[in-house]
Design a binder for these strands. Structure first.
Lengths: 348, 348
DNA sequence: TGTTAGCACTCACTTCAATCGAGTGCTAAC
DNA sequence: GTTAGCACTCGATTGAAGTGAGTGCTAACA
């Protein structure tokens, strides 16, 4: 039994129809709606074959067929035709992006909103994180008589601060000088580079500052670690409730529960980070409560080693080609803006 | 017809039972479960009165009664007895708070999670915002050959930065000197204080820097404006789906939609900002999709004029006394920690 | 006069059977 | 290999009957 052209046409018809109507598709529907030039009886025969091959499923005897995860996989890999964004959609995306230049967190927030509006699914965006966070500049500033401000600029132009509280603060001159020295030594370092050797060297060479140095080193570590944490922006969760597949409240609840677990989401997004775009269909996804969901992730880059991920979560019956095209549009838009941002203007 | 003791006892019984079971409460149930020493017939007569007075409602003839918003209001204002937190709950809150000291955004994130776990409702927390954001210190730092870093510390110890991108960057000396001057002039100012007069004065006195001054002033404004934006943390939205009152998916969806509108949430939280604690019951709340919800807000302070709000959103049939006690516990815990934070260590 | 027992009545909810109809699989004819 | 025809399946809908929690009213009681 081979997957001939006609079978493929029928499979495609089933998928298209099911994506549109969310109802099992019968042979007569296909015969009427899609002029394949064959009768419903013939289509029935082919459908029987397609079911045997695992591409479609009959939810119960005497019902129409719905695509299986395998069917969607075939569709996504070979059958799906690329959609172009409509000029309105393109315009909409650009407006969002341009209106929010400058503040990367608001930009991503708005992007997530836009994507959920355009796709009618749930959007999750992770803020860009550098694979290796490298110190570009370190400064110490006296803040008041009990605290010093540590400012670290990373090579991809993120700025992080930390207020270091201490009993008594040395003279301004001293703080600035110490800052300059640390800057001199640690420039270009990642957290991993600041190992015991480096610390010992600093302790030796900066013996005169032994009162405050430990505080400062600890603050540097804290700050660098915090920079590694991933921030997420999510939008359009309510769209889930519009999907008939989640009209069962228990199902919806457990999905919502999952969507509140940051770790799970981060893992999910990370899994797609190697490729430009990745599509996880139904049970290809390991998370139990998302077995009826597909997740499409796209990676956006910002400089050489800083990247974030956009994920669209919808039912397996999602409009894949629409989502893919919207995602493509968004990624190219955002990368354009981030290119500018990468040269300055980032705030975190 | 007066609201005598017996009527109040019956009303209280109805409310307690309804909060527990979510089912309309009948006279026989009350007679059996709460030994008021009167028969169901008498209770029926009293209930009829209570209904006439507007405290309870009969969803349909021949069903039990449920409390009206007015009934809940009476309960909340006069009948509700304060619950004490159990030692476990108290411990749980303290653990959360202590485990996350130092990073205010993570702290609030975890707090929101904890509150939604303890209450089984949805929690929204706004990050503390100063009523009047006052500049404590301004610094300019050369970052690289095309950008300067602006650092503003506000009087309540929040740190904000902004990378100012410009064609060519003056010499380090110049930047530092300019920074010192701005710091000298603008210390203690709010955004409102930096009016046209001040700007003109700066432009006159810093004429030699006319090439970069406008960039910097614009950056200061942007940064101060961004500091005013409210950040929200939300958790436990999935709890909504466990409430029988939202088993109607349409209702649930429209509530979820509302919960994604930041403006609405901010307004909601702001409305409670004047009081320590505020309870909005059902339609006392203006938002249409929240007419079946009650919102309890509590304000937490951090220093004299910096405050944030915690809001718990649940069905009008929420366990008010439980929520109030958990909120009280949380506020006192968080204020303790923020007191320390306010003296340093905040990162934004 | 307030309380209570008793009873008729209401109405949402459940159950069950009948019916409907979309869809299938199989067979026989083309 | 394709198709028309037909019996069959089974979820969904409809409607009638029954159930039960709950009410309001009345008359009797303390």
């Amino acid at each position: 039994m081979s997957l001939n052209d006609r079978k493929i046409q029928i499979l495609q018809a089933i998928i298209n129809d099911y994506i549109e109507t969310a109802e099992p598709v019968g042979s007569r529907t296909i015969a009427k709606k899609y002029n394949l030039g064959i009768s419903s009886a013939t289509i029935r025969n082919e459908m029987s074959d397609l079911e045997e091959m695992g591409f479609i499923i009959q939810p119960h005897a005497s019902s129409g067929r719905i695509p299986s995860d395998l069917g969607y996989r075939l569709y996504v890999d070979h059958l799906m035709q690329k959609k172009e964004l409509s000029p309105e959609e393109e315009q909409y995306l650009q407006n969002i992006v341009n209106r929010n230049v400058g503040q990367i967190d608001y930009l991503l927030e708005e992007m997530a909103k836009a994507l959920s509006v355009l796709t009618n699914y749930t959007t999750i965006i992770s803020e860009p994180v550098s694979q290796t966070i490298r110190i570009k500049q370190i400064r110490l500033l006296p803040l008041d008589d009990a605290s010093i401000l540590l400012v670290i600029a990373t090579e991809d132009n993120f700025i992080k601060n930390h207020v270091i509280k201490m009993g008594s603060v040395p003279h301004e001159e001293v703080i600035l000088r110490l800052g300059m020295y640390l800057n001199h030594v640690l420039q270009g370092y990642t957290m991993a580079d600041i190992d015991a050797d480096v610390v010992r060297r600093l302790q030796r060479e900066l013996a005169e500052y032994s009162g405050i140095l430990p505080h400062i080193l600890k603050a540097i570590e804290k700050t660098m670690r915090a920079a590694e944490k991933v921030h997420l922006h999510m939008s359009g969760t309510n769209n889930i409730l519009a999907c008939p597949e989640f009209s069962d409240i228990q199902k919806a609840k457990s999905l919502f529960q999952t969507l509140e677990e940051k770790d799970v989401l981060v893992t999910l997004l990370e899994s797609g980070k190697s490729d430009d775009m990745q599509i996880l269909i139904g049970s290809e996804n390991q998370v139990q409560s998302m077995k009826d969901c597909s997740v499409i992730t796209a990676t956006y880059k910002m400089g050489d080693n800083t990247r974030g991920t956009i994920g669209i979560v919808g039912p397996t019956r999602m409009d894949y080609s629409q989502v893919v095209s919207v995602l493509n549009g968004m990624v190219s838009n955002i990368e354009k803006v981030l290119k500018n941002l990468a040269d300055g203007n980032k705030n975190t």
